[in-house]
Nucleic acid binder design. Structure first.
Lengths: 342, 342
DNA sequence: GACATTTGTGGAAGCGCTTCCACATTGTTA
DNA sequence: TAACAATGTGGAAGCGCTTCCACAAATGTC
């Protein structure tokens, strides 16, 4: 494949029109699939576009249409954790794919709170992008309040902490996920079920914890064995050690991420607890880790890719003026994946 | 802080000029810090800009200047490994920071080989971005050949496999890193030194391996104990198991990443080998993992952030027309960080 | 066959900006 | 004092595109 040469003196719509033997207005309509173009003219223009290798100048188009054909992916707190999480990878992949279908570009906006955040807001408010997708939103940033004020179309991936009434978002049903995981252990016969929860400043983590508590309450079991981890394997190890020490009678463990669950499995092994016989362990995510642990993790599937895809489509809809009426939320169900650990 | 309102009917340069009592031409010069503007006029324009909240329309500016003030970060093969690697996080952070200084935007281009790659090349060749920074380049993609042909300014982060004569790049001195790590073990008295290398399709991995072999050769020691890992902890475990089984006499281990080294430490512990007394282990990266292993890892510092920063600055220089003469390479030295494991 | 409608087309305006050029004003040198 | 350069300024062109509008031709209706 010969790559396309850089278009310095690239062909303009004028030249296309001349070659096709039509006016620039007609050429423009033909290129953009506009109405009222004869089949004859359209074919001539397409032919000219092909032979000339014409590509519309985006800046010129943006200048008149006021559309940039790019959207921002906003990551409020790009600490290491964000990137090293499989969550982020899946999200970016899905967003890229959906945007690619429509030739919309992805502008990545990472901003630590402070000056960078201010610049980011200024950027968003100046019409440089058509919309914004916010992922990995944390408790402290005020994005869910600020973005609607700015007036740029936006969608949150994951329920924002505050302002969830004002802002459209797509989320995974983490409450149900936590509940179903726990219910599964109950059905399996566990009677003393603890949990390793995620960081308390993320809605995904607190929701799963809520689901766990709900299920135990419904089953009439006590819900006091909780330790918070940080979604890393190491955090899972520490949390599991604490938990097993404080509550040696545990026969079931609901862990808020597979990575932490892997750490917990190691600890269980070190303590001589057989999984699942002595201790049933259920994880969360199923994003590539769960099938490779020993024993393989039973887990709740976390449809991150689907969430990102839906969020992106929702954003595009809002940009196009569809769905723009009021807040909108979409909750994606999770699904139990049974393997060996429970 | 009140966020800036979305600029729908934003003020234009015309209005600024009117308010400042000058012509649009003068206003433009003042805004862009052009020459030949009186102090008086400049101040008036600045004042008007402030009161009106004027922000230049990027599309209009791009249309005439042919500059987009955005650069692409190209990730040729966005598999999970890329994202979950701390390498990627550090890189993006550094790039963002440098670009932020100049108000240049980061367009993220992820492309699987195939159709997406074609689209990416088309995008790059149409002048949508001023330049491209290629990271995580693998052996199979032909980017190092294609991009120079396209004519878009580009810089590679990490030496490309082929075409390194034609393309400017910034790299870490992985050969020296591998060599120095090994020399350190030699100085410490190790006489039988193996290595867990990285994937054979990444220059960073093969370079470190080369350095290891060089050092052993110089010291007159045999360089036959090699196993390749995949830069993950699990891969490190497997590789270490193999290595210790095949070469039970090893007294030193050079590991191409800290994550793999952590896996190796676990294996050593399982085999009852005391580190560093029975087996000295040295890692590579020092990006947050090494200080938290047990024992803490002696390692080679991998200045990823600096590499990304330099690469970005080099790209900006090339875009500005500085440094545009011919290929350019910059090799950043690594540094030994001594802790407990060796 | 006279009229109203639909359909296809091109001319021209204008999006907001930079920059060339011409001109006026000042300062400098012979 | 004349000739010149340096400096500051505004008018106007033009970047490449979309889209309004007017108009001609084709089609439909009674």
């Amino acid at each position: 494949m010969d790559p396309p040469r850089r278009t310095n003196g690239s062909p303009t719509l004028d030249e296309v029109a001349r070659v096709a033997g039509v006016s620039r207005a007609t050429a423009s309509r033909a290129v953009n699939g506009g109405p009222r173009v004869s089949e004859h003219a359209r074919r001539a223009v397409e032919e000219a576009v092909r032979t000339l290798g014409y590509v519309p100048n985006r800046a010129a188009r943006t200048l008149v249409t006021r559309r940039t054909d790019s959207v921002a992916v906003v990551v409020p707190e790009p600490d290491e954790r964000v990137f090293s999480d499989p969550f982020f990878a899946s999200t970016l992949r899905a967003v890229t794919r959906v945007l690619g279908e429509r030739e919309v570009q992805l502008v990545l906006l990472l901003a630590q709170p402070g000056a960078e955040e201010t610049r980011m807001l200024r950027y968003l408010s100046n019409g440089h992008v058509d919309g914004a997708l916010v992922v990995s939103h944390h408790r402290d940033d005020r994005l869910a309040e600020l973005l609607p004020q700015i007036g740029v179309p936006c969608v949150f991936g994951g329920r924002p902490w505050s302002g969830s009434e004002r802002v459209p978002y797509v989320d995974v049903d983490n409450v149900a996920g936590g509940r179903e995981a726990t219910e599964y252990l109950v059905r399996r016969g566990c009677r003393r079920i603890g949990t390793i929860a995620g960081p308390a400043d993320m809605t995904a983590a607190t929701d799963r914890l809520t689901g766990w508590a709900q299920a135990l309450h419904t089953a009439g079991l006590s819900a006091d064995a909780v330790v918070h981890g940080d979604f890393t394997e190491e955090g899972g190890r520490l949390a599991a050690s604490d938990l097993l020490e404080q509550h040696p009678d545990l026969d079931g463990l609901v862990v808020a991420s597979d990575l932490m669950a892997r750490g917990a499995l190691r600890v269980a092994a070190e303590h001589g607890r057989r999984v699942p016989d002595d201790l049933a362990v259920i994880g969360y995510d199923d994003l590539g880790v769960a099938e490779r642990t020993d024993p393989a993790l039973t887990t709740m599937k976390n449809p991150i890719g689907e969430m990102a895809e839906r969020a992106t489509r929702l954003l595009l809809d809002r940009i196009d003026g569809r769905e723009s009426g009021g807040p909108y939320r979409l909750i994606i169900p999770t699904q139990l994946v049974i393997r060996q650990s429970a």
